[in-house]
Simulated scan of single mutants.
Amino acid sequence: MSPDVSPLERRYRRLLRLLPATHRTARGEELLGLLLDLDHGRRHPSRHETLNIVALAIRLRLTTPVTTTALTTGLSALLVAAGTQPAGHTLDLFTGAVLTTDMPALIASWPQLVVLGLLPLAPLIAWLCGATRTALTLQAIFLTVTVGWFVIDVLSGAGMGINPGQQLFAYAPPVLILGLLAIAARERWTAPRPRLFWWALVPLGILAWKGTGEWGRHGVYVSDAVPTVIGIHAAATAAVAAAFAVRRHRPAVIVGVGLTGFLAGWLIPDRLLVNTAMQHFDGQPLPLAILIAVAAATMTGIGHLARRPMAS
């Protein structure tokens, strides 16, 4: 950079690096000149213009194809994991979670239980059908009702002894889903393809929650297998990312980085893995959402690699 560059210009150039490279190439110098004119005589960018640049960078990066794909995949994974949880637990109630002596009372109220178990699937189904605003409205209603019940319990004294940290962690997925749906509605995002993959995950997610209910009841925590599972996921993610980053020698990159990721996953301490990955057995949808997102990203990456010709 030229020594004649003023401190203001140098700092604005650093800020403009937040913008996507394509936008900087097309409009960077023009935008820089405008900012220097607006803040002429200053040594530091004004707070107003700094916030404008940050907001512009966020908006532009949210509209890039890679970011859009990543966020819609994450949103879909969260919706599947959180939406299928009540249905899975309802299925578990009627297939082993309740003692035989208590089944008559459960059977007597089965319509209400089934409805309550299936209702949380509504935002997911609306999202997969392309009705993003409907999904947003339904998610907002469900979150409001859930938080309202919690507040009523606290005010009535029924919520004594609740761990605030655990409660905040429990509300994190639905709040994150609501935020992503709001962005999706604004940017007119749609569910990622192939849609059949995501529709198939609905019954699979219900069965997964049923299975974790069984495992949790009988204390089956297969901690020895966790490093292998995490290693495989780390290998697949790292290999696909590296294959996109490196144009040449893709097969070698996939194998090499994949083995490295597998070893890295294997060497992570068991205690750390049990305390993170196995949280799914405690009824938290986030680990299942991560698993679904990794599977979807891996499938998308492999599909892109299969369609692209190999570089010479």
Rank of each mutant, 00 (worst) to 15 (best):
G96P: 05
V151S: 05
K210L: 12
R27A: 14
D102N: 13
L113E: 03
H44C: 06
H23K: 14
L178P: 00
L168A: 09
I177P: 01
G256L: 13
G219R: 15
G83F: 13
V5T: 13
L263N: 03
A87F: 13
G83C: 13
D270K: 11
W198M: 02
I292W: 00
E187F: 04
F262S: 01
L62T: 09
A131V: 01
A277R: 01
M278A: 15
Q112E: 09
L31G: 00
D153G: 15
E187N: 11
D282N: 14
T298V: 12
V240R: 10
A243D: 06
Y12F: 05
L121K: 05
A170N: 05
W110E: 03
R24G: 12
T260F: 13
I177R: 00
P194Y: 12
V294Q: 06
P287Q: 15
F281Y: 12
R193G: 09
P174M: 05
L18V: 11
V222F: 10
C129I: 09
Q85E: 09
I58Y: 14
R13H: 06
I152P: 02
A239P: 06
W198G: 04
A87V: 14
V5S: 14
R59P: 03
Q139T: 09
R42S: 13
A185V: 14
R193Y: 05
G130Y: 08
W198D: 01
R250C: 11
V255T: 07
A293I: 12
P123F: 02
R59Q: 09
L196E: 06
T276Y: 02
P309T: 05
R186A: 13
P120V: 07
L207G: 04
G161E: 15
T84G: 04
P203A: 12
M278G: 04
A97K: 15
L71E: 05
D39S: 08
A70V: 12
L267E: 08
A182V: 01
P203N: 04
G165W: 11
P65Q: 06
G28W: 09
G130H: 11
R248W: 15
L305M: 14
I141M: 04
E187W: 03
G148P: 14
F150H: 08
G165C: 01
Y221R: 09
S109Q: 08
L138C: 02
L34W: 00
G261Q: 07
S109C: 00
G216L: 07
R47Y: 02
